[in-house]
Design a protein around this nucleic acid. Structure first.
Lengths: 278, 278
DNA sequence: TGACAAATTGACTGGTTAGTCATTAGTATA
DNA sequence: TATACTAATGACTAACCAGTCAATTTGTCA
């Protein structure tokens, strides 16, 4: 296990127990059995650590959900969506706790931005599933339903994590599917309307520009340690400035860097940029 | 306005913006235009301040809800419950924000205990309303419904507070009433069962022992500044050890101290202890 | 006005924090 | 073995924190 991983794992435990603010770098390094200096060889700052942790897990969960959304038939998609999320929460309970605790808190503006980014992605995913499953049947209610679902999920997740209950994934997924269906079918008085949701940019797509991606590719290049990754990133950087290669080649180059978990988000964004997603 | 009130109001703003941990006493006193020393004339510590703020608002909200529950006909009780809570949230948006932020966080064990106490009281209130409205019709689902309602309320409150939307109290109350009714009527797969709720003491009544109350009475005595309050508390302290007076007298003594908002909770608990509640 | 008390101040203490950097330990190469 | 390089250390700095208290200002009453 790399030192970076060790620090992330141990810090995760402490953050879940005490919260981010309340955990000192000294505590983390003591718990890892390394010196304080060694910490700063792996991370530029304490902030960088929490950002890395959040990215690491959120990307993993996002990828699982994306996979589910793409590969499950419409009639079971809602079930598998809930199942995927709660499975991830049960596997990474410490991370889920951090997510709950640090949600709206956080002084750190980068952290807040990241949280909002993932929150918006969740909104979009739920919305697209709902549109997929119910079509036009709940047109005026779909935004309201998104927030109802998020509220229910959060409530149950809090209960489970706080009381440290072992989860019955099937039961909770089925219970939430039923509630979603009931609400989709019967609600006539939505609170959150389409204009409300849009006015507050809740569902804005927030595309990254080529320049943003260029910076991210450069950052990834610095972190890369094998030849294939480095070459792939160099070519991708050129292609961001002027696309000359075919989608198949670009896709392959992105796959080359996709193996490392810290590159998953970049890969996802690049595929989106080059319009390689289905 | 007393200095205590000034500090509480200004601190509330800062806590809502930055969180409790991240706000220093120096910041608060600067914002109030007073010296650091003056702060410690009003509050023994920073912790005492946050506890006072939470008690102040939660007691106010609790009293409003209790009043609603007692004085509204069964068929409109659900509506007025939501209305009361969201009215309080819109009036005290800064406090509501603190409540959202500091929920599960907090190292401070007294603060955590207090939060859990109020959370449990909310659970009990919702449960009793549901039992009142739906009776035996949703026997096996009532605990699940409590958490569904809490989840929905939380989700909407978060959306409103975070986006700083002006609230349509009627709409949100009606929307939530409808959802509650729909869920009560149609849910067949509850996630949170009765045994689960009981096993985790979610609805345990958590009675205070005479000894606990004794300490609380003593604390209140130290804070009291008028003769009537002091005498009342002295007598109540004796009565906790050996009850000799009639319920009417005890009730009157409690009413004597009930005026000050910091005594409301103690009054409530004493009435419960002496079985003076209806 | 003067004497006393109460309210207020802000420099100070002791403690903790994130982050730095000169020094040392370890390892690979020649 | 000598050299060169990297990895790791922990004492140190500067900043910040909650809470204290001697000194000062303000208010009150005779």
């Amino acid at each position: 296990m790399s030192k970076k991983q060790l620090i992330m794992e141990k810090a995760l435990e402490l953050f879940a127990k005490q919260g981010f603010e309340a955990t000192s770098v000294q505590q983390i390094t003591d718990y890892c059995g390394i010196s304080k200096g060694a910490f700063y060889l792996s991370f530029k700052s304490k902030d960088e650590l929490i950002l890395a942790i959040i990215d690491h897990f959120m990307e993993q969960i996002s990828i699982d959900i994306d996979y589910t959304v793409r590969n499950v038939t419409t009639d079971r998609i809602m079930y598998h969506f809930f199942h995927t999320i709660f499975l991830a929460f049960s596997r990474h309970a410490n991370f889920a706790k951090i997510l709950m605790k640090e949600q709206t808190h956080s002084l750190n503006s980068k952290l807040l931005t990241k949280m909002q980014y993932y929150d918006r992605r969740t909104d979009q995913t739920i919305l697209s599933i709902i549109e997929n499953v119910y079509g036009n049947k709940i047109k005026g209610n779909k935004f309201d339903l998104v927030f109802a679902i998020k509220g229910l999920m959060n409530g149950y997740a809090n209960f489970i994590l706080f009381n440290e209950i072992e989860m019955d994934l099937e039961l909770i997924s089925n219970s939430l599917v039923e509630k979603t269906e009931i609400l989709a079918k019967h609600v006539t008085i939505p609170f959150i309307t389409e204009e409300m949701a849009e006015r507050f940019h809740t569902f804005s797509d927030d595309e990254y520009s080529a320049v943003d991606l260029l910076h991210m590719v450069e950052d990834a290049f610095k972190e890369a340690d094998d030849k294939i990754s480095k070459e792939s990133l160099t070519i991708l950087k050129e292609q961001l400035q002027l696309q000359t290669y075919s989608p198949a080649i670009l896709n392959g180059l992105i796959e080359n860097i996709y193996g490392r978990s810290e590159n998953k988000r970049l890969g996802y964004l690049l595929k989106k940029y080059f319009q390689l997603t289905n």
